[in-house]
Simulated scan of single mutants.
Amino acid sequence: MSKINRPRFDNPLFVAIDTIDVQRAASLAKAVAASAGGIKLGLEFFMANGIDGVHRVRAAAPDLPLFLDLKFHDIPNTVAGAVRAVAPLAPALLTIHASGGPAMIKAAREAAAEAALRLGIDRAPAVVAVTVLTSMDDTDLMSVGQRGPASDQVLRLTDTALAHGAAGIVCAPTELVRLRARFGAQPLMVVPGIRPADAARGDQKRVMTPADARAGGADVLVVGRPITDAADPAQAAAEIAAEIAAAAELTGAA
């Protein structure tokens, strides 16, 4: 197996820009650029604006890494083709669903590496596998026929993802300590469900503060509405970045 692409980010704060308005997305990216470590564009944005829309947002914050959160989940050949299709955008991170299985995970990683080589991109997109969505809890898992508790399903899916070439996983912050104990420091841990103590949870069910998630071993902290819905997104991003940095100093996190 070729070496797994495992990027490291000096600033772990990625701002989730979840809107279909490309002008608003670009404005938000520009506003948070001084404090964020990256931006995340997801399915909602991509379906409305496509590759051209991604280029427009990146132009507003050209120095920020891109997390393209499209959560591919299909047969291996189709997922490989989808990875090749978005590779020219040079995302630092690209998501698939771990539940797609070993062959799909392997196909996604190989397609990312091959596309980067063909396009002359310095670093291939790091493929990270979504385990259990942070909007789901044990009851939700049971309703779709999966064994709970959610933390056990996350562990099973992480085993599969890492064994077949994923650079890391997407998990709820509440699972970080258990995952780090099992898999060590190497896998990339991408964590949504980040909420400052005074923020509303919204549709997230397994959440944690930025400082606690960083202290627990998160490499990438994905924060959306507490920043993008704030009266001053730039200030909100700066405050959360400061909280994360303070937590890193206290724990000695890199």
Results as ranks from 00 to 15, higher is better:
residue 4 I to Y: 05
residue 4 I to N: 01
residue 6 R to G: 07
residue 8 R to V: 05
residue 9 F to K: 08
residue 10 D to C: 03
residue 13 L to Q: 02
residue 13 L to R: 11
residue 13 L to S: 06
residue 15 V to K: 00
residue 25 A to I: 04
residue 25 A to K: 01
residue 26 A to T: 04
residue 29 A to C: 11
residue 32 V to I: 10
residue 33 A to E: 14
residue 34 A to T: 10
residue 35 S to I: 09
residue 37 G to N: 11
residue 38 G to N: 03
residue 43 L to Y: 07
residue 46 F to T: 01
residue 48 A to Y: 10
residue 48 A to W: 05
residue 49 N to S: 07
residue 52 D to T: 11
residue 53 G to A: 11
residue 60 A to V: 07
residue 61 A to F: 10
residue 64 L to Q: 11
residue 67 F to W: 03
residue 67 F to G: 04
residue 67 F to H: 04
residue 67 F to L: 04
residue 68 L to N: 01
residue 68 L to T: 11
residue 68 L to M: 07
residue 69 D to H: 14
residue 71 K to H: 14
residue 75 I to M: 02
residue 78 T to F: 11
residue 79 V to I: 10
residue 82 A to T: 02
residue 83 V to Y: 04
residue 85 A to V: 09
residue 86 V to T: 01
residue 87 A to R: 02
residue 89 L to H: 06
residue 90 A to M: 00
residue 91 P to Y: 00
residue 94 L to C: 09
residue 95 T to W: 13
residue 96 I to D: 06
residue 105 I to E: 09
residue 108 A to S: 14
residue 108 A to D: 13
residue 109 R to S: 15
residue 113 A to R: 14
residue 113 A to V: 13
residue 114 E to D: 10
residue 115 A to R: 05
residue 115 A to S: 12
residue 118 R to N: 11
residue 120 G to I: 00
residue 121 I to A: 09
residue 125 P to V: 08
residue 128 V to T: 11
residue 129 A to T: 12
residue 129 A to S: 07
residue 129 A to F: 15
residue 138 D to K: 00
residue 138 D to M: 07
residue 141 L to F: 04
residue 142 M to T: 08
residue 144 V to I: 12
residue 146 Q to Y: 06
residue 148 G to L: 02
residue 149 P to V: 05
residue 149 P to C: 14
residue 150 A to Y: 00
residue 151 S to K: 01
residue 152 D to N: 02
residue 155 L to Q: 04
residue 155 L to H: 07
residue 156 R to K: 15
residue 159 D to T: 15
residue 160 T to F: 00
residue 162 L to R: 05
residue 165 G to M: 03
residue 168 G to H: 15
residue 172 A to P: 03
residue 173 P to T: 04
residue 174 T to R: 13
residue 174 T to Y: 01
residue 187 P to N: 13
residue 187 P to R: 06
residue 189 M to D: 08
residue 192 P to L: 12
residue 192 P to D: 01
residue 197 A to R: 09
residue 197 A to V: 05
residue 199 A to H: 03
residue 199 A to I: 15
residue 203 D to S: 02
residue 210 P to S: 13
residue 212 D to N: 08
residue 213 A to T: 03
residue 214 R to A: 03
residue 215 A to S: 08
residue 215 A to L: 01
residue 215 A to H: 07
residue 220 V to L: 15
residue 225 R to P: 15
residue 225 R to S: 15
residue 226 P to W: 01
residue 227 I to Y: 05
residue 228 T to S: 04
residue 228 T to V: 08
residue 235 Q to T: 10
residue 236 A to N: 11
residue 237 A to E: 05
residue 239 E to K: 02
residue 245 A to N: 00
